[in-house]
Design a protein around this nucleic acid. Sequence first.
DNA 1: GTCTATAATATGATAGAC
DNA 2: GTCTATCATATTATAGAC
Lengths: 186, 186
Amino acid sequence: MRPQKVDDKTLIEGLMTVLRSKGFDGASINDMAEATGLKKASLYHRFPGGKKEIAEAVLKYVSDWNNKNIAQVLQSEEGTPKSRLDKGLLSIKNLYNNGDSICILRALTMENSADLFGVQIEQGFELWIESFTKLGVDFGFSKAKARKVAMEVIIKIQGSLVVSKGMKNQSPFQQAIKSIKETYTY
Amino acid sequence: MRPQKVDDKTLIEGLMTVLRSKGFDGASINDMAEATGLKKASLYHRFPGGKKEIAEAVLKYVSDWNNKNIAQVLQSEEGTPKSRLDKGLLSIKNLYNNGDSICILRALTMENSADLFGVQIEQGFELWIESFTKLGVDFGFSKAKARKVAMEVIIKIQGSLVVSKGMKNQSPFQQAIKSIKETYTY
DNA sequence: GTCTATAATATGATAGAC
DNA sequence: GTCTATCATATTATAGAC
């Protein structure tokens, strides 16, 4: 065996970048090879199932990231609810490059990819909603109010990302993050 | 010349359905042929520029639709602001099949399509924002407040569509429409 | 204007050398 | 584990009959 040219994490992150900027149909194996520095056949060696397996691995990585940087941060026992909110929102800002990137769940929510990865996409959204709901409860909201606010938060993040990308202007996203802080602290 | 098999409007609407459910890269000319009942070569006859020209024609159709059903309705001289809001929101509900469909501007906001149709997409969002801003002014808001509310409305619509599609549940979209009415009437 | 047939290219995927 | 070479298929696009 030759030495591994690209480590797993770097590889997955490169693949994720391609998938979320081009979508499942728009991202060719060649695109992925160029982005990661591996050749097509090497990608097939590491993901024998081809493009579908690649997307599944990326979604698994995203799920792990969400658990670590959203769920665990927002629901941690340490720190005040406010400090956890700030930390979570900072992770989100970085995740979306301050409004310049698309959410990969959104990028994969087209007919073809939604058919293939519907469950993973659904669970991704669920995790965010549950995490923000629990945070709202810690802020003193009733369960019902907390869930309502959580939905509004997720919707605001997703919507502002769509608008920011469509209008080539990051401020809708940045404003949305600000207003989410106010939602919880006033 | 043989008789025209499909009229322009029916054709464009069929093409629009394919484009917004599969995206620019995901929609093949064959998909479009099947959806419209024409053969590939016939599509090339009517759109010599191929897929790009098809998408441009669809975006032109969308722009006209927006002018007629959003801009003109919201900014009409007739009726109360509230009645115009209700009429516009009803058009929006129908446009997105009550939360079951994706916004075509969103579907075409991927790297490839955004590069090709960036200006049209940008103008599409602009039109919505301007229209809702003017409506807000008619409701008695200051210009600044009206624009802020308009941005929140667009973001809420786009975000709720993403979440509804991702979670296979139309209620986020339906709730969003309700809450938009409240935004203007309380 | 629509169709069948076909060309040219891109893409997903595999075989086999190193 | 990575690579070059290759294949089969899908896709964009065109030619020419009706």
